[in-house]
């Protein structure tokens, strides 16, 4: 990644906001009210010393995390890290072996019936009825909640996910990306306040991926908390906070900015009559300013190029360093 003097966070913020679409009406009404109730009360998700063993295999080895209300929280990790296991535990589909967890202050197992109205879970697989239409699928899962305005909600979420013109067609005629959208519509229909999305953008084309993330940011703006797992490290940039899970343990917990600052920046200075010289500095913006003052402002400097580690490089090198330590 090459950036000239534009702080990364500003840039990513611009990128994030530029294409925010106008479709945000969908959540505002109900979620805004409920968000008020919760704001400042407590964290949306709290996990303490959570463990899960499948036989003798430990899939989660003491996970700790805290997710604030209204955040887009990214759970990053390679395949097999335990992301799905953690999400299933949080939505009450899986009994952990030990530890504690709270979602909106409720216990996912003990307070299941209460919690199910407030959370939405999008599984890693499509988990839809292939013979039924998109509309019937969304209506079926929505009807579990006894919504008074079910028909209207079904229409709204199908519109929101851009499925209105295929709503009557059977799911088995849909492409992978369309199935993902139906799956998302099923999650949104009952206006949940916390969303758990298990690799929603895996095997999705770049266009749809961008649209998904725009949608996620819109939902977060309306006060919904999003807990999103992904094995694509570059998506960390689009989250407010990130946890990296590796072999059942959280090895990094930070903001994307904080993670980037752990990376390195190379300042390449080209002087007239001489070749290039390369300086490696830390990742803080101040480091860059200082470096430019000391190397960049001399009379004979023709060009200065700044190369920063990408988020992916930083995370992968942190995972590697962890591997050496363990």
């Amino acid at each position: 990644m090459e950036q000239r003097f534009l702080p990364w966070f500003k840039r990513s913020y611009n990128e994030r906001t530029r294409d925010l679409s106008t479709r945000r009406h969908i959540f505002s009404a109900s979620a805004a009210v409920s968000h008020q109730e919760w704001r400042g009360c407590m964290e949306a998700i709290a996990v303490r010393a959570l463990t899960k063993s499948y036989g003798s295999f430990e899939a989660l080895k003491g996970v700790e995390m805290s997710v604030p209300q209204g955040a887009v929280y990214g759970l990053l990790g390679p395949n097999g890290a335990g992301k799905s296991t953690l999400i299933k535990a949080l939505v009450g589909a899986l009994r952990p072996s030990g530890g504690e967890m709270r979602v909106l202050g409720l216990d996912p197992l003990r307070d299941r019936s209460q919690l199910r109205r407030c959370i939405g879970y999008m599984p890693q697989s499509a988990a839809l009825y292939g013979d039924l239409s998109a509309r019937d699928n969304v209506r079926f899962f929505g009807s579990a909640h006894g919504l008074p305005d079910l028909d209207r909600r079904v229409r709204e979420v199908l519109e929101f996910t851009d499925l209105s013109d295929r709503a009557g067609d059977a799911i088995h005629t849909f492409s992978g990306g369309m199935k993902r959208r139906v799956s998302l519509a099923c999650v949104l229909v009952h206006r949940p306040r916390v969303l758990f999305l298990d690799e929603p953008t895996a095997a999705v084309d770049p266009g749809l991926r961008a649209r998904f993330w725009t949608t996620f940011r819109d939902l977060a703006d309306d006060g919904v908390t999003l807990f999103i797992s992904t094995h694509l490290m570059d998506e960390a940039l689009l989250c407010d906070e990130v946890a990296v899970l590796r072999q059942g343990r959280i090895i990094i917990h930070d903001t994307p900015k904080g993670i980037l600052e752990r990376g390195l920046t190379r300042v390449v200075v080209r002087r007239s009559g001489q070749g290039c010289e390369e300086h490696i500095i830390g990742g803080h913006p101040e480091d860059l300013a200082q470096a430019l003052r000391s190397y960049g402002l001399a009379q004979d400097v023709d060009a200065v190029e700044v190369r920063r580690d990408t988020l992916e490089t930083v995370i992968l090198s942190l995972i590697e360093r962890e591997e050496v330590r363990v």
Binding site: R117, Y121, P123, A127, L128, F141, A144
Partner: peptide, 13 residues
């Protein structure tokens, strides 16, 4: 196997 059973339970069935 399709995961719809799990989805039913999480939706409150």
């Amino acid at each position: 196997t399709a995961g719809t059973l799990e989805r039913m339970f999480i939706n409150g069935f």
